[in-house]
Amino acid sequence: MYRIMIIEDNDKIRQELCDFIAKNGYETIPCSDFEHILSCIDQEKPDLLLLDLNLPIVDGHYICREVRKTNTALPIIIVTSRDSEIDELISMNLGADDFITKPYNLQILLARIERIIKRTYENSSSHTLSINHITLDISKSALTYQDKTIDLTKNELRIMHCLFLHKNTIVSRSELMQHMWDCELFVDDNTLTVNINRLRKKLEYIRLDDLIQTKRGLGYIIYES
C-alpha cells in the first residue's frame, strides 16, 4: 500500500483529506509538527507528498526545495489556495510534480495521485482491472475473456471502467455520465444509451451477454462472483 504524507496546517482539511484518501486505498501520514517537517519526511519515508503552500514557520516552496536537494524521486503534489500563475510556475521550477488549487475536485485530486504514483512506482505500462477472469486493459482500450479480445471505443472504455470500479454496486446513469464528463467525454443521455447498446452487442460476441445488468430505474451493475 502506498503511503501518502499530508502536510496541511488546517486541522479539518488535514483530517478530512486523510479520511478521504484512506478510503480510497492509500495509507496516510498526517503531519502537524511544522517545525520538524523535513526530519519527519526523512523518518517516515512516504511514497508521495501532498503539500500546502501556506504553512506556519516555513512555507511550502522551502520544503519543496529542501526535499529536492536530497530526494529527487519523491513525487510532490502542491495543494494550495493561492491560484496565481507565478506560484504555479515557482512550484514547478522547484520540482513539484503537480499543482492543484483549492477548493479542489476530489476526484481530480485522486486521479492525479493515482497517475503520479503509477508513473513513479509502477513501470509496467499496462493498467488492467479484472472481474471473473474478464480483463479490462485500460491502456490498450480492450476487453479480454477466454482468449477473445474486443476493442472498445473511448466512450465504451470509460463506461466499462466506471462499472468495473464500482463492481457489485449499482451505478446510476447520471453517475456514469458524471464519470465520463470528468474524463472530458461530454456525452448526452441519448449517446449514453447508444453506447451501452453497442457495448452489449460487442459483449455478446465474446459470450458475455449478461455482464452488464440493468436495474430498472436505478442504473447498471456488474456482479463479481
Partner: peptide, 16 residues
C-alpha cells in the same frame, strides 16, 4: 484565498 480554506474543508467534509 483565506475563504477558500473553509470552502475546501466544507467540500472535503461533504465528500466524506
Amino acid at each position: 484565498h483565506e475563504i477558500k480554506t473553509p470552502l475546501a474543508a466544507s467540500k472535503l467534509i461533504i465528500s466524506n
